[in-house]
Design a protein around this nucleic acid. Structure first.
Lengths: 111, 111
DNA sequence: CACCCATTTCACCCAATCGTTAAATAAGTG
DNA sequence: CACTTATTTAACGATTGGGTGAAATGGGTG
């Protein structure tokens, strides 16, 4: 699952938001989500890890999770690119029509 | 489906990217995705509409889709907030340890 | 090494999502 | 109004995703 997919889940967004304030162990994170079981949180963490949104360091049995800029940067870059390409100041429909977007009348094709 | 969910699909991201360059009719958009059927694209457009990422204007039978800044702004705001809260310059694990994140030795509890 | 703690992996279920085909809706033309 | 174009809605099957409890893994302690 890519960055967008990883962040499409509200729980995972909350995890990322928590980690923005500082690193947490898997257990601490799980404790933040009383409505979820431990394995549930663990799987979310795996998905975030695969998406390069978080990283883990091992401290004995504990896994300390930390936010990683990589994944977020991808997301940010995509949004920035789209926004840059989008001429928001011009009315979009007007622009479309000016560019000759609609070329023909509709209905039965002329014979 | 919210903005994140809407953008979790690659096809929908491509639609948004296309619309960033200018408005398109549903038919024109569908033509950009030869591997998908027309109704398939139509449903993606509906999801993007619900997420306030695009807007429609009616031109006779044609529906002209245009990118809307609203949804993208939400996404941008979320990313910006997380990045602002994330002290990227400090090593995250170090910070965690300094804050006393790990308080006890592991193993069997002391009696 | 017996026991404990922390976390992940496994097997399974249910709900949501994606894509398709067929039918419905909406609107222009002669 | 019959016909055509443009697009959406409906119904349905296949796949993925999130949740759970149970078992497995990795590591520390006495």
């Amino acid at each position: 699952m890519d960055v967008f997919g990883a962040l499409s889940d509200p729980t995972r967004r909350r995890i990322v938001a928590v980690l923005a304030h500082g690193s947490r162990t898997a257990g601490e994170l799980a404790a933040e989500f009383p409505r979820l079981t431990f394995p549930g949180v663990s799987r979310h963490l795996r998905i975030l890890r695969d998406a390069r949104l978080v990283g883990v360091t091992v401290d004995a049995q504990r896994r300390v999770y930390a936010l990683k800029p990589d994944g977020l940067a991808d997301l940010y870059a995509w949004v920035a690119k789209v926004q840059a390409e989008f001429p928001a100041n011009l009315d979009s429909l007007e622009r479309y029509l000016d560019a000759g977007g609609v070329r023909e009348k509709t209905g039965r094709r002329r014979r």
